[in-house]
Structure formats: structure tokens, C-alpha cells
């Protein structure tokens, strides 16, 4: 049987990108411990709506931890107190009756707040657009098994490829760096044979775009790795550095 609790939530409210914003405090009463964190917010929002108050806006979609849309900074940590999960997978049993929970949006200059807790993460899209792909057209492709990939390499590439692009790495990093995100894609492609043709131009292009977006620089604190819901490893950042420096110092490929 589920237990119920009464909570206080301190939420960042901001009307739009121009608004200065500030915290507002709400009561979240009679919250079942088997609710997810977002369901708790749903309950609060239903109450606010019935009172005629603008509900708290936050991004969410799949609610099964894979789309990467949910993004709350809860009590000083992205995706809340547990590791290896997104906010939508966080359940209220991780909190105690009477607790005050502070909820903030991702804070990054490159992720402007759209409203309340929702931020604009299109910077991530633009980084991917800069080179996060293999330039193959549809059709005219060799049989899939003509490109063998050793299992350990395939597994390693997969580990990098599991990134959901939620931005928790940026939110967690004291420097607001996006390197875990960028390096995950660069790594995936650098590891696989399919990615070799554009390997060095890709690293340059993606890093370049990352800098253009104004993300911070990495100081290897490892906070991103700890908070990443998909447990993307810091090794990826080392690999990205290697790719980038190799490209810059020893290769002739330019960005295209």
C-alpha cells in the first residue's frame, strides 16, 4: 500500500525568456509515494488550474526515461537525488514527508528559459547538425554484414550512443560544459568503421559549434558522468579531446 506525504515545493517561475523570474512556493499535499515526480507536479498543476492560476510549465514527453525531454534541477541536482535515471523515473518515495523541494530549470546561457522550468535546448540540435552523422544517402548501401564490427567496439559505441540529449551534463557541470554530450556522439562515430571517413572533420565541426553556442569548458570534475541518466562515461571526453587534437595537429581534413 502506498504511503502519502505533504510537501512544500519551491519552484522557479518565469513567464518567458525576457522575464526575470523568481521562486514561488506551493503546497503539494497528499502525495502518494508511488507517484512519479512529474505526476506530483501534475497534481499540483491540476490544483493550480482549478484555482485559476497558471500551471507550472515543464518539459516532459515519454515519461519512460528515454526521450530526454524532462529536465528538472531538483534540490541541487539534475534529475533529482538518484543517479542513472531521468526526472520522469524519479518517484516520490525518494522524498520524505514534510520536505521542501526546490525545483529549478537547467541553468546555462546556451539553454535560455522558455517558461518556468522549460528551457530551449536547440543548441544541442545545432551541434549535431554540425557533424553528428555519417554522410550516406538513402539507398545504394552495401549489405549490412559487409561492415563487420568487433563486438567490444560495437558495445562501446553503443554505450556512447545511448545519450538521450537531455542536457543533465550541462546542468550538472559547474562550468556549464556540454562536453559529455558532444563527446558521446563523436565517440560513437569515431569507434565505428562507418564513422571513419569523416572522423576528423566531424570532431572539429562539432567542437567548433559547441564553442559557438557558448557552453563552458570542461574541468574534468566528472559531475556530468555521475548525473547522466544513461551513465555516459567520461572516457568519451578524453576520446573527443584525442580526436580533436589529432585532427587539429596531425590531419589535413577541414570542416565542411
Amino acid at each position: 500500500m502506498s504511503k502519502h506525504m505533504n510537501l512544500t515545493i519551491k519552484v522557479w517561475r518565469q513567464k518567458n525568456v525576457q522575464d526575470k523570474g523568481g521562486f514561488k512556493t506551493y503546497k503539494a499535499d497528499n502525495i502518494a509515494d508511488d507517484m512519479s515526480f512529474l505526476e506530483m507536479l501534475d497534481v499540483v498543476n491540476e490544483g493550480l488550474t482549478k484555482k485559476g492560476e497558471d500551471p507550472i510549465h515543464f518539459d516532459h514527453d515519454c515519461r519512460e526515461g528515454i526521450c530526454g525531454m524532462c529536465s528538472l534541477y531538483i534540490n541541487g541536482r539534475p534529475h533529482g537525488p538518484k543517479t542513472a535515471i531521468t526526472t520522469c523515473q524519479l518517484h516520490m518515495r525518494s522524498f520524505n514527508d514534510g520536505e521542501t523541494i526546490t525545483i529549478e530549470p537547467w541553468r546555462s546561457g546556451a539553454f535560455p528559459v522558455i517558461k518556468d522550468l522549460a528551457v530551449d535546448r536547440t543548441a544541442f540540435d545545432r551541434i549535431q547538425q554540425a557533424g553528428g552523422y555519417v554522410s550516406v544517402n538513402t539507398g545504394g548501401i552495401p549489405d549490412a554484414n559487409e561492415i563487420p564490427v568487433p563486438k567490444p567496439i560495437a558495445d562501446e559505441a553503443f554505450n556512447s550512443a545511448t545519450c538521450i540529449g537531455c542536457g543533465a551534463c550541462v546542468a550538472a557541470c559547474k562550468n556549464g560544459s556540454a562536453m559529455l554530450f558532444v563527446s558521446a556522439k563523436i565517440s560513437q562515430m569515431a569507434l565505428l568503421p562507418q564513422g571513419q571517413q569523416e572522423r576528423y572533420q566531424r570532431a572539429q565541426a562539432m567542437v567548433n559549434q559547441m564553442d559557438t553556442e557558448g557552453f563552458g569548458s570542461c574541468t574534468n570534475t566528472g559531475a556530468c558522468e555521475v548525473e547522466c541518466p544513461k551513465e555516459i562515461s567520461l572516457t568519451n571526453i578524453a576520446r573527443m579531446n584525442r580526436e580533436y587534437f589529432t585532427a587539429k595537429f596531425f590531419k589535413e581534413e577541414e570542416m565542411h
Binding site: K10, F23, N75, G76, R77, T102, A172, K174, A223, V226
Partner: peptide, 10 residues
């Protein structure tokens, strides 16, 4: 951030 728990992850 208003609340920052850096010690939890680094």
C-alpha cells in the same frame, strides 16, 4: 542555481 549540491557528484 539557488541550491547546488556539487558535493554529490564531484
Amino acid at each position: 542555481y539557488a541550491v547546488y549540491e556539487g558535493g554529490k557528484n564531484a
